[in-house]
């Protein structure tokens, strides 16, 4: 746990060193990534709860914990898989574990910033919205920046190739989602078919 926090501190202060260091053997554990993602989820939920009334865009009943979790975990997982896969084909050096943990740690700025920034909404009026949205954007762009550094350092790419790989990874994510939804639909049909078949057979017994 403490180790994870130390890593979090490092990714904020020295991102290049951080992504260099995690390539050393035994430096990172799978659990580090899980801890960061859990923290990100908690930060997101807390920020939804502490949003000031004027800034709320959803009623309490419109917020689903499950949905928020899915929208956090699924993009992260698919990004890890797509980015790892694409870079593995195009001479990237990163291992899947490094990509997996490195992507999770890119969310650290968001984890750190979002709760204090959202607490601000309790002190701000709607016409001061720009302050709030600026700070939220800082958190998001910082995270995106870390993600790019991650791609660069872990796979040891040139800057232009980083952008190219990032675009390819996003396309990869789209393909994974498409196939996922397709498979989900087909499986649904198959399971429906099998249950109906079973029911039909039962009727004729």
């Amino acid at each position: 746990m403490i180790q994870t926090f130390q890593l979090m501190k490092q990714v904020l202060t020295h991102p290049f060193n951080f992504y260099n260091d995690i390539q050393e053997p035994k430096k990172i554990r799978w659990i580090d990534a899980i801890i960061v993602i859990v923290l990100a989820f908690l930060a997101k939920m807390i920020s939804i709860v502490v949003t000031g009334y004027a800034f709320q865009t959803r009623e309490a009943y419109e917020v689903s914990y499950m949905q928020e979790l899915v929208w956090l975990v699924v993009p992260w997982l698919t990004w890890s898989i797509a980015n790892w896969g694409v870079s593995a084909i195009l001479d990237g050096e990163g291992k899947f574990k490094e990509v997996f943990v490195g992507s999770a740690f890119a969310l650290v700025p968001y984890v750190i910033m979002i709760v204090p920034v959202t607490l601000l909404t309790n002190l701000l009026a709607l016409d001061e919205n720009s302050i709030y949205s600026f700070l939220v954007n800082v958190a998001i762009y910082w995270s995106a920046w870390l993600l790019l550094i991650k791609v660069k350092v872990l796979h040891d790419f040139e800057p232009w190739k980083v952008i190219w790989i990032t675009i390819l990874s996003i396309i990869g994510i789209a393909i994974i989602w498409f196939i996922g939804i397709l498979l989900f639909g087909l499986m649904n049909q198959l399971i429906n078919f099998l249950t109906e078949l079973w029911q039909e057979l039962n009727f004729r017994r």
Binding site: A54, L123, D127
Partner: peptide
């Protein structure tokens, strides 16, 4: 708040602040 009027709420909040 009861009227679901966030804009007016915010204006009143500013004065209250």
């Amino acid at each position: 708040k009861l009227a679901n009027s966030r804009g007016d709420y915010s204006v009143a909040f500013k004065e209250y602040r």
